[in-house]
Design a protein around this nucleic acid. Sequence first.
DNA 1: AAAAATTCAGTTTTT
DNA 2: CTGAATTTTT
Length: 805
Amino acid sequence: MNKLFPSGAENSRLIAMSSFDEMDAFEGASLSARAMAARPMPYLDGLNPAQREAVETLDGPVLMLAGAGTGKTKALTTRIVHLLSTGKARTNEILAVTFTNKAAREMKERVGRMLGQPAEGMPWLGTFHSICVKLLRRHAELVGLKSNFTILDTDDQIRLLKQLIKAEGIDDKRWPARMLANIIDDWKNRALTPEKVPASDASAYNYRGTEFYAQYQARLKALNAVDFGDLLLHVVEIFQTNPDLLAQYHRWFRFILVDEYQDTNVAQYLWLRLLAAGHKNICCVGDDDQSIYGWRGAEVGNILRFEKDFSGAKVIRLEQNYRSTAHILAAASGVIRGNEGRLGKELWTEAEGGEKLRLIGHWDGEEEARWIGEEIEATQRGTRGQRPIGLNEMAILVRASHQMRAFEDRFLTIGLPYRVIGGPRFYERLEIRDAMAYFRQVISPDDDLAFERIVNTPKRGLGDKAQQTLQTVARANGVSLVDGARLALDEGLIKGKGGTALRRLVDDLARWGRLAGDGDLSHMELAEIILDESGYTTMWQNDKNPDSPGRLENLKELVKALENFENLQGFLEHVSLVMDNDKQDAEQKVSIMTLHAAKGLEFPAVFLPGWEDGLFPSQRSMDESGLKGLEEERRLAYVGITRAEELCTISFAGNRRVFGQWQSQLPSRFVDELPEEHVEVLTPPGLYGGGYGAAAPRAGFEEAPIRSTIEERMAQADGYNSPGWKRMQARAGERGMSQPKESRTQIIDLTATSSFTLGERVFHQKFGYGVIAGIEGDKLEVDFEKAGLKKVVARFVTARDDIPF
DNA sequence: AAAAATTCAGTTTTT
DNA sequence: CTGAATTTTT
């Protein structure tokens, strides 16, 4: 045990720290090395050769390139077990870092299961952020913080910045705080402190970005607070400026494991490099083809450079896939092949058979949702001719969250149970954040941001002016806002209704603080008291909005969640780091989530809607990051396809509502990259080929309406490589959209004004035949024979005699 | 100071 | 088209 601690003359800080560390040291070490080594190693049996190599290569740097579904987690957890079993390391000597809490939890569980004992003794298995919090609490004073610092979330961050911006008299309309927050985040991701921001970034935020960054950091320090980026950055700084302390950790963490290495940003990379500098026993696991977080600072370069960074690194490829059919793998490979500069990896499988991927185009987003809904029901029943698949085993993966809406709408109307993963998070809801601000204020009275949030919530008659007074008094006396409030009250600066209410709040806060200190009450009781006596609960009870009852429910849930924690502090810490809330309900539901949220998951049946240029690949990615952006989008496509085990259905729509405005869409370029021989094109009769709803060009009769012949339609129907398809793809280049176009996906002139006339007989795909009763720009009022009077968008309607059949 | 009206910007993706 | 945020009205 003693060898873990520095012997002889170390400076006092290290000694002090050692005693701090002892708890961890004794916690984990249980089985003696010899006892473990003598045991057989049955856990190695189920591994394929590559996995086995990854598990057994314990010393020196290892890069495990693990493709999707190749048993990465298995290899990683087995490696930990192997380290422990061979006596190479004890539980507390392994630093294992993940990105998500979910991944950390899963790893803990699996290690525990394999060891046949709870893995509680892995104190250093966690996310980058949670491990950094642990480290930073120990050494906070080295960066001028107190160890009870608060962790701000994005919301607090922006409010803080807004204050700074306002104070400088800048129009935060032109220069939003949001933008500044993103800039600062980006700098922090790149491990740049205000002094280190390069000159090339000087123009950021109207040439005042660095200035504000420095101000912001100073303000954080004054508030004894850190934001997310700081967690990494402060720890890096501590290590850089305290080599002896770092050396201590080198001895401490004898083996380092990193999950999802392709997602690390510069700060995380530096952090790892510092920690691994001694022994170089670092094993990074990742897949360059699944790097999809470039936009938030992840550097694919980190994984591409690994061999250079760690000389003598062993690179092990896991390529045997245990998840998907050969068709799915081939399709995924076909798409990802389009990327340059890959480390190179080809997934293969022993599995045989399986269905091809399915590709289908739809008229618009709503029809896509409708079709997928029906398809899900058919798949569930097994009507489609293969085994019935439960709703839990199906997922819809979208590029952007706003796409979810169409599915939710549709599924609600047909009563198909669904769950949205990664939607608005529980702890981000207004009422939860308010409640937590109360808790924060009670626990740490100096938390001015919390005070600002609660001072007039519920309404206490303390408006802008009163709050301004508080700020002034607090600042003039150099005290926190609560204390400032006390002073202001004593001075009689705030009178009347607001004064009374403020006095009451201040007294309440003090009282709750004492209750918290006494420890006579459970923290759950205390929480309830705070919420009730502050009038916060009452506020929602009196609110007549339809969502108020839900909010009250959430507050109840919040209090219930407290059960699992020792005290309020512990809870608040948990919340700031663990923002997940996948409450597992037992019901069978289809999952709807973004492609990003789907990474690491798998489903027997996967639907990938919205494969349209501009949506996926997203226009924004391509505008902002050009080819790099496109490649990341392509990796996203790869991630999407490889989530599927048996059935993968890709779809696109010809028309979609964007910003409330109808837009025509072209199929994604990724559609073209799907290898033909692994794809089956589904073509609902009558959808393609200028039939329904094809508003034949009517602006100006000079242009003869282009209409596909029946032969052409039939040719088109058997594949997306048909001439019609190719022609449409060729037209993708002309982004002008000025002249009417015809194609199987109904490219329609958006700029042409409607040329329908009153009284004209028309046809609408959903409502049938009708007569035009009114015209408003591109909107028509149509009196339908069956459906009655409706307003419809002109291009949904075609003249009666356009109907071909 | 609170409610109502009006404008405005935004849709990736998140530890 | 929606929700947030700002401005105007009460």
